[in-house]
């Protein structure tokens, strides 16, 4: 058990809660819209961006956002095309971004830079400033109001993009907003969770909620609840074990997902039906 100064404890706790909230809201979009490859690419682009920021000595958060947004803008138009070969996109973008990140990190001078680089890779509570928490809070406010105000449009979009468009929803604009918010959630959570793992925090809570609920509204509520709970539990776990915080959070959320798949009422009924048949 490591003891932290009170201020750092508060920042880290708030940061964990807010990162969990924003990532798991983004997760609902990412999982349902089948844009997992885009989320995946964005998290690695953000990682490469942060490394680039270290290299040119500007705030890594800024360059992470920049890289994630550019990736989002490049990929958003292809998000709803059936023809998009996701394997190819993942293959190219993922390896390119990781390669870029390593090049940037390698070029960055000095001890301090490599320490910072490691933090971006693994995530660290020491990397999170009050400003990061503030940005995360603003982002969470944006996401919650987006979901509340445009719930019916989001529902239509999540059910079927073509039918949503046919009913008069501006699907193009909504897709852009969704992809953009996801990019921001990834970038803002990067310092805390780490570039390699932030993606798991997006996918796991929503996938966990999927095991239990048939009603989209409940997914929209419980995915963030599970995300925040994983983050708090992971944070405590990391204090206890001295594991990196990102790793702890992802381990907790992965365990939750595994348990939920094992006990899922959805799957259980399916199994009984299959046995009966």
């Amino acid at each position: 058990m490591i003891s932290l100064p009170f201020a750092l404890l508060v920042t880290a706790t708030l940061g964990s809660i807010l990162a969990g909230l924003s990532c798991s809201i983004a997760g609902v979009f990412v999982v349902r819209l089948n844009i997992a490859s885009i989320g995946f690419c964005m998290s690695h682009a953000a990682f490469a961006g942060a490394a680039f920021g270290l290299l040119i000595e500007v705030d890594p958060l800024l360059t992470a956002m920049l890289f994630a947004s550019v990736t989002a803008l490049l990929l958003a138009p292809v998000a709803n095309r059936a023809k998009l070969n996701t394997d190819v996109v993942i293959g190219i973008m993922f390896s390119l971004m990781i390669a870029l990140a390593f090049v940037f990190l390698n070029l960055s001078p000095g001890e301090a830079a490599s320490g910072a680089a490691l933090r971006i890779l693994w995530g660290s509570i020491f990397a999170v400033s009050e400003y990061d928490v503030l940005y995360l809070a603003l982002l969470c406010a944006m996401m919650v109001s987006f979901v509340t105000l445009f719930y019916k449009e989001i529902f239509a979009l999540m059910f079927n993009q073509k039918l949503a468009k046919a009913a008069g929803v501006n699907t193009y604009v909504f897709m852009l907003i969704v992809v953009f918010l996801t990019g921001l959630a990834v970038s803002f959570s990067l310092k805390l969770i780490g570039g390699l793992l932030v993606y798991a925090l997006i996918i796991n809570p929503t996938s966990t909620a999927y095991q239990f609920f048939w009603d989209f509204r409940k997914i929209m509520v419980f995915s963030p609840v599970i995300g925040v709970a994983s983050c708090i539990a992971g944070f405590i776990f990391s204090l206890e074990t001295d594991f990196p915080i990102g790793a702890s959070i992802v381990i907790v959320s992965a365990i939750l997902l595994a348990i939920s798949i094992a006990i899922s009422p959805k799957r259980r009924t399916a199994k009984i039906a299959a046995q009966a048949a």
């Binding site: 949503a164 009913a167 999927y210 048939w214 989209f216």
Partner: peptide, 13 residues
């Protein structure tokens, strides 16, 4: 995770 009534409502968005 979509209930029928909500899918029908989504026609009215």
């Amino acid at each position: 995770p979509f209930l029928c009534k909500n899918v029908v409502m989504s026609g009215r968005v």
